[in-house]
Design a protein around this nucleic acid. Structure first.
Lengths: 339, 339
DNA sequence: CTGTTAGCGCCTTCAA
DNA sequence: TTGAAGGCGCTAACAG
């Protein structure tokens, strides 16, 4: 069961050297005779020696592990963020340990505990749609373990954050709908504990205001991102005495689900009702009609968050600054909004 | 920078007990007076004591980490496998550390090294489409670290594997095409270093044989799964003097890409050419026409692989058996094969 | 039931 | 340039 790993002690014995000398040779310490170093290195190589990370971790009190908490794994969004983060992190000799919570607050809390138990050197976090209490994350800050939020952030915590310009993205989405002649623009919004929902909603309001389109609260529905509910809300909207002629959905999955419902009712997209999403999921290009959406620099978000975190790790806690990086978005026009 | 973590020694000092007593109380050792245990536990609780996993790892020579190597992250397939594996693994107190190689052999090798350096207790592996040399994985077995393959396996290594019944799935896919009246069935196959490609190809042959349809080698193309190439091959097939009336693609992304090309040429699916994929990606239901495909029990695959691995970890190396678990598939009929 | 001692494998003073 | 000794925080004998 337990394999016999070769250790520094073994090497020292074989080579008739002291453990410290071997250790020094192995760590590239300057004070070793070139000859000795070569001897040790060669022996280590051919005997397939590998440092015992457990011991090193104990001495240095560092795990070289960075944790990342993701709320879900099934859209392409978070996997891409992870890839971005991993590239950055591994280039600095760290490893990523990932935990996904399936949008469950309970699971998120337990995942956070696991990260703590594993003594990660830092944590990247995007919270679930249910998360309203952040105690489990504050604990990290208290222990001196740096945290960086990305995408779904907790605005009350004084830590660095990476977000996209949701306000601006939403604004441009709605502006685009107005420019193609739509007047009654519905918004299927996210739960308002998520700051992205609030920011996108504000962008929606701002665009209407700019073009003097009256706000009709009837056309704004916030929902909990549970896909099954989309059908209900869309049908409700379409059954209104004055139904909407356009829909701005909080994200692409929502928009896509909405499109299925709309198509089933025999309505034409975009003629009868135009649809626009948010995030530019891979799907949005492939469905029919293809979906107009707001693209985010997803890999870059992961990379940036990782970079901020690595900086914190290298910096004394007294110098930590809660920078917020806001990434730009891009309007991608496809067939769901043009005739 | 370094936070001041409280240790057993601290607790012992505070409570005027020996370190071993405290340790015993904390680990639930039976030989401690109920009163002492309570005292210790309470103090630990209120002082927010947390075991130092580095020290425990050193003593036990276990990391409680399980590594998983995935070739890519952008289809929904591997994320689902990961979720399945994570559920199993975390229920036994282990954690998952994930590395994706972006279908690059080099990256896979380097990821494997990282896993080794982190001294994972076991490894789940699905290789890249490029991987032909398995030395980097054999190293684990040599060191006594258990490995389990899933999905894309190395048949030459004597370790447990979890695969789906590719042969049977392919057989039924092709049989279905034959039953709806198709006669010239093309197969866009995968690279033949992947055993799944070979097994699916064999299933294809078997179905043709059973129904006495002559094999036309012209209709079989293996390719390297690089999406850009699909267009070339599909156009080639459609330009043949006798073009195919059906296509069995190695996987869903390939099938979907093929459908775009077919539709662009103005051909009707399934009337002119029926299409069938493999894996039942989320996409296949949403594109138009929806894609007939072979579904795999994806979560279950991750779960099963994890289960096999956990068994190995608990078992003496001399008793390891290279079981191969073959999971069933299911034909999901959609519009790309029915009129 | 509790305390003492000796490591786990490595790094890091301090001396030689 | 090298060696010896101590310690990182915890567990696991061995005594008492």
């Amino acid at each position: 069961m337990k394999s016999h790993q070769i250790t520094i002690k073994d090497i020292a014995k074989q080579l008739n050297l002291s453990k410290s000398t071997v250790s020094r040779a192995l760590t590239g310490h300057p004070m070793v005779k070139e000859e000795t170093r070569k001897l040790v290195l060669e022996f280590a190589e051919k005997s397939d020696y590998q440092k015992n990370s457990f011991a090193i971790n104990l001495v240095t009190q560092k795990s070289n592990l960075i944790g990342i908490l993701v709320p879900e794994f099934l859209s392409t969004y978070f996997p891409k963020v992870i890839i971005g983060a991993q590239n950055k992190i591994s280039s600095e000799g760290y490893n990523l340990i990932i935990a996904q919570s399936n949008e469950s607050y309970e699971t998120e809390v337990s995942n956070a505990r696991v990260m703590m138990a594993n003594q990660v050197d830092g944590l990247l976090v995007s919270v679930t749609k249910e998360t309203r209490n952040f105690e489990h994350l504050m604990a990290f800050k208290r222990k001196g373990i740096p945290i960086v939020f990305y995408n779904r952030v907790c605005e009350d915590m004084d830590v660095p954050k990476v977000v996209v310009d949701d306000y601006d993205g939403a604004f441009r989405a709605v502006e685009h709908l107005i420019k193609i002649g739509k007047k009654r623009i519905a918004h299927l919004a996210g739960p308002d504990n998520l700051s992205i929902s609030r920011r996108r909603l504000n962008g929606y309001y701002a665009a209407l205001r700019k073009y003097n389109i009256p706000v009709d609260e009837e056309l704004i529905i916030s929902y909990d991102l549970t896909m099954e509910k989309v059908k209900i809300y869309i049908n409700h909207l379409l059954n209104l005495p004055k139904p909407p002629d356009a829909l701005f959905a909080i994200n692409d999955p929502t928009a896509i689900e909405a499109m299925q419902v709309i198509k089933k009712r025999g309505l034409r997209i975009p003629e009868d009702i135009a649809v626009i999403g948010f995030s530019n999921d891979q799907l949005s290009e492939l469905i029919e009609p293809s979906l107009t959406t707001i693209a985010q620099p997803v890999y870059k978000i992961g990379e940036t968050a990782a970079e901020l975190l690595l900086n914190l790790i290298k910096t004394d806690i007294s110098l930590w600054k809660p920078i917020t990086k806001t990434m730009p978005t891009e309007l991608v026009i496809r067939k769901s909004t043009i005739g």
